[in-house]
Structures are given as structure tokens and as C-alpha cells.
């Protein structure tokens, strides 16, 4: 169940991410990547709690290679925080929920 995590693509990127009124955490992922699958439930849990403050989105890099290339994603999962269409922070790899909360703390206040 995707729940509060929005699946974005090249078609919806502009509207859902670049022009979002809330900060957006984008999870660049692919089905072949073990850590991406490991971390997906954590992102869903965060989305269920914090959707009023941030948007939580996931972009499949396999289906959207142009965007992955544009943002120079060469490792997955890569997480990027977009505010007003700009990347404000980016980090790589699966990690515990508490570390996500601390990485996102500035936008979860």
C-alpha cells in the first residue's frame, strides 16, 4: 500500500515536486535494489505521520532514467529534499527511522 507516499514520474515531476507548496522528500529507487525495499516501509511510516508538513514522493529511476540522470543519481536509494523546486539536501542509503527524522528535522518542525 502506497498510502501517503506519492509515486511520481517524468510527467508529474513538475506539478508534484518542483511546484509543490510543501517541501518534498523524493526517494529515488528501483525494484532491483534491496536497501530500497528495506527502507520503503520507513518512508511510508514517516509519510503517515508527517504528510501535513512535507510531501513524501518516490521516483522509479528505471522508468524515469532521464530525471535520474539530470539529478546525477548514481546510487540508490538516494533521497533529496526539494523546496521551491531546488534541492536543499541529499543523502544516500538505507538508515534507521531516527536518522531520517534527524535529516528531515528542519522541515518537520
Amino acid at each position: 500500500m502506497a498510502g501517503n507516499v506519492v509515486e511520481v514520474s517524468e510527467n508529474t515531476w513538475n506539478a508534484e515536486v518542483l511546484k509543490s507548496d510543501r517541501p518534498v522528500l523524493v526517494d529515488f529507487w528501483a525494484a532491483w535494489c534491496g536497501p530500497c525495499r528495506i527502507v520503503a516501509p520507513v518512508i511510508e511510516e514517516l509519510a503517515n505521520i508527517h504528510s501535513n508538513k512535507m510531501k513524501f514522493a518516490k521516483l522509479n529511476v528505471d522508468d524515469n532514467q532521464r530525471l535520474a540522470g539530470q539529478y546525477q543519481v548514481m546510487s540508490i536509494p538516494t533521497f533529496a529534499i526539494f523546496v521551491g523546486g531546488e534541492v536543499k539536501k541529499r543523502f544516500v542509503g538505507a538508515m534507521p527511522k531516527e536518522r531520517f527524522v534527524s535529516e528531515l528535522s528542519e522541515w518537520l518542525k
Binding site: W32, C36, P77
Partner: peptide
């Protein structure tokens, strides 16, 4: 992680 990032 080669299995994660090899395809890039």
C-alpha cells in the same frame, strides 16, 4: 552496493 547501483 553493486546490486543497487550496477545498472547506472
Amino acid at each position: 552496493c553493486a546490486t543497487c547501483d550496477g545498472p547506472f
